[in-house]
Simulated scan of single mutants.
Amino acid sequence: NNFVNTCGLGGTITVNYTVADDCGNIASTSATLTIEDTVGPILVTQLDLPSDVVCSNIPEVPELTFEDNCSNQEIEFTFEETSTYTGEEEMYTITWIWTATDECGNSTVITHNINVITENFIEDSFISRCFEDGEIDLYNELPLGYDTDMEWTVETDGISIANGIFDPLDVDLGDYVFTYTTIDNGCLKTFRLTVNINEDCVVLPCGSLDRIKISKAVTPNGDGYNETFNVTGASDCGFVVEVKLFNRFGDVVYESDNYQNDWSGVSPSSSIGSSGRLPNGTYYYVVVLKESGLDPIAGPIYLGTK
């Protein structure tokens, strides 16, 4: 007899039979026995997973162990996760699929569905600013743990912001509410910021650079916000403001020896560079406060003309 292995412990056994009588007559025959592995691996791990959870309690994906009683070889293992969540559902379904395959091609598939209920966790914060304190970058107010890929939402009617910049000079005194929401597995995490704008301003001495506030963005689109590039806190001290604006190639696109907070993204023909409205992008300023004794101030300014 002989044994021919096909996969795992399966294969074929052929048995040859030969008989002879006393007269020397001989007869022979054979029989073939086939051993075939048709059963997939068996799940050994105790699977105890919930079917319904809130988004903050989604369990970790367990590592499952399988065994195969017809194979001494390693089992191939795959895992797949799918979700019906699109960003708007109050309930959605996560599906986990484990597939274990032995060397004979037999597979065992374990599927588990988890129904997830979404929630919105709100974190409140309050800050107070004087209307003369300059622009507020709302992204700087986010606590640790929040990414900065989303947009702020204005909850107070009648105002708008651009790129997360809130300018107290553009609004009346009072409270203004902004929200910032991120999404993780259907859980909404919202940071709700209330900004109180008041007139409790601290007057800094004229010899301090902290007194000078310079625009970070200019968006001359007619909405009344960030229409011009502003240098505030200099006129009260009697300083004459000299301004030069450059593009990313170092060309001067605007300059003034007595700036009056009136640049709205236009490059006049007297400048080095093309005349007319400038394209969107980041530009760079150098501000000199004449006869102030202060060093020149330089930095980037974003221009959004659309």
Rank of each mutant, 00 (worst) to 15 (best):
C130Y: 14
C130N: 14
C130E: 12
C130D: 13
C130S: 14
F131A: 15
E132H: 11
D133R: 11
E135D: 07
I136E: 10
D137Q: 02
D137R: 01
D137P: 07
L138Q: 01
L138G: 04
L138V: 05
L138A: 01
Y139N: 09
E141N: 06
E141Y: 08
L142T: 04
L142M: 01
P143G: 04
P143A: 00
L144Q: 04
G145S: 06
D149Q: 04
E151W: 00
E151N: 07
E151K: 00
W152H: 02
W152E: 01
T153C: 05
V154N: 02
E155K: 05
E155W: 04
T156D: 00
G158C: 07
I159A: 08
I159N: 06
A162T: 14
N163A: 08
G164C: 14
G164V: 15
G164Y: 08
I165S: 02
P168A: 13
D170M: 14
D170T: 15
D170P: 03
V171W: 08
L173R: 13
G174E: 04
G174P: 01
D175M: 15
D175Y: 15
V177H: 03
T179S: 11
Y180T: 15
Y180V: 15
I183Y: 14
D184V: 09
N185Q: 12
L188Y: 06
L188S: 11
L188A: 06
L193K: 09
L193R: 12
L193Y: 09
I197R: 04
N198Y: 02
E199Y: 10
E199C: 02
D200E: 12
C201T: 07
V202S: 06
V203G: 06
L204V: 08
L204Q: 07
L204K: 10
L204Y: 10
P205G: 12
P205W: 00
P205E: 05
G207T: 13
S208A: 13
L209H: 06
D210R: 04
I212D: 06
K213N: 05
K213C: 01
K213I: 04
I214M: 07
I214G: 06
